[in-house]
């Protein structure tokens, strides 16, 4: 058993600092912090007065369907036939295979699996339609659809998806060319009407009860649309436009995320199907290096090599000759 004692070890300028034996001077810390607070307050009040803060209204399903009902109908059929972004997302929303990101053999989202179950066909289309009252044609359409075989359902959905790609808006009504899509026309037509009236927004939120505070399903639905993506691009917010670190208008946004967002702009990340996990892993590593700088030889020597400290403590070094 070894005894604790005071030893002398070789001085390492990147690790050690000798206790200060020199002089001191009066220094009012509380006054300094108070003045700093007042200075920041003046700056903040000034900028808040001059520039305010951005507040573009949230996009509801009603806003979306009213602005572009064709896009709404196209997105909705993709939710029903399982081809939308959400339907093919995989964990944590569903068990769709093949879309999870991985780093070599490691796919953390696949390993953790489904924790926030979302079934777009049921949650976005069939569920809300089943709440419609006093509409026998809708009830009949749902009965026909539910009674059909999966292959028949798929055939109707495929035919409708083709037809709705040629749809038009006539006097505010969605007009889809005729086709062999069975009950789907009535279903998506009713869903579009619900969306435009605002009833679909309520139906989506009501899924979590009276006091809903979870908008996961509504947001996933809206984010599957080309309308939402177009709004983001119009505000210069898409991924290749430095994405989520920005906000609408000419505000600084989350400028501190610049390095995280930067990697998405450059190869190989900008063209990688696994960019999210790759960038997250890289940022995790860089964060760890920042945290552990004091212990990493070479990295902790950078301050000494760059000699910026000579400028910071110029008075001290001048006094030392």
């Amino acid at each position: 058993m070894s005894e604790t004692t005071i030893l002398q070890r070789r001085f390492n300028p990147d690790r050690d600092a000798r206790p200060w034996q020199g002089g001191s001077r009066p220094y009012d810390l509380i006054k300094e912090v108070t003045i700093c607070f007042l200075v920041v307050t003046v700056l903040v009040v000034g900028l808040a007065f001059l520039f305010g803060s951005p507040d573009d209204k949230a996009i509801s399903i009603q806003t979306w369907a009213t602005a572009n009902q064709i896009d709404f109908a196209q997105t909705s059929i993709s939710e029903l036939n399982g081809t939308s972004g959400t339907a093919t997302y995989g964990p944590p929303y569903n068990n769709f295979v093949g879309s999870s990101q991985s780093l070599g053999p490691i796919s953390l989202e696949s390993w953790i699996g489904v924790h926030i179950p979302v079934n777009p066909a049921q949650d976005f289309v069939l569920g809300p339609l089943s709440t419609v009252a006093n509409a026998p044609n809708v009830t009949r359409a749902l009965d026909v659809f539910n009674a059909a075989t999966p292959s028949q359902q798929l055939a109707w959905e495929t035919n409708y998806a083709t037809a709705v790609s040629h749809a038009s808006s006539v006097n505010g009504h969605l007009v889809v060319p005729r086709g062999a899509y069975g009950p789907i026309g009535v279903m998506i037509g009713q869903l579009t009407a619900m969306a435009k009236s605002g009833a679909l927004d309520s139906a989506m939120v009501d899924q979590s009860g009276f006091y809903g505070t979870n908008y996961t399903k509504s947001l996933l639905y809206i984010a599957d649309s080309t309308y939402f993506a177009a709004q983001g691009t119009a505000h210069h917010l898409s991924g290749d436009q430095w994405g989520m670190m920005n906000e609408t208008g000419n505000f600084p946004g989350q400028a501190w995320l610049w390095l995280y967002t930067f990697w998405y702009q450059v190869p190989p990340f900008s063209t990688s199907a696994n960019a999210d996990i790759q960038v997250s892993a890289l940022m995790g590593l860089l964060s760890l290096l920042l945290l552990l700088v004091p212990f990493i030889p070479g990295l902790r020597s950078i301050p000494r090599w760059t000699r910026v400290y000579r400028f910071i403590w110029k008075d001290y070094y001048r006094s030392q000759g």
Binding site: D56, K57, E109, N214, L219, I222, H235, S280
Partner: peptide
């Protein structure tokens, strides 16, 4: 508002890719 919708739907992919999205859901207001 729109900013929160956009940032949440963009950020979810990064969070989900790490597996943390199962527990930290940016879309859950």
């Amino acid at each position: 508002n729109f900013d929160s919708q956009w940032i949440a739907t963009q950020a979810k992919d990064g969070i989900n890719a790490t597996g943390a999205g199962a527990f930290v859901n940016a879309l859950n207001f």
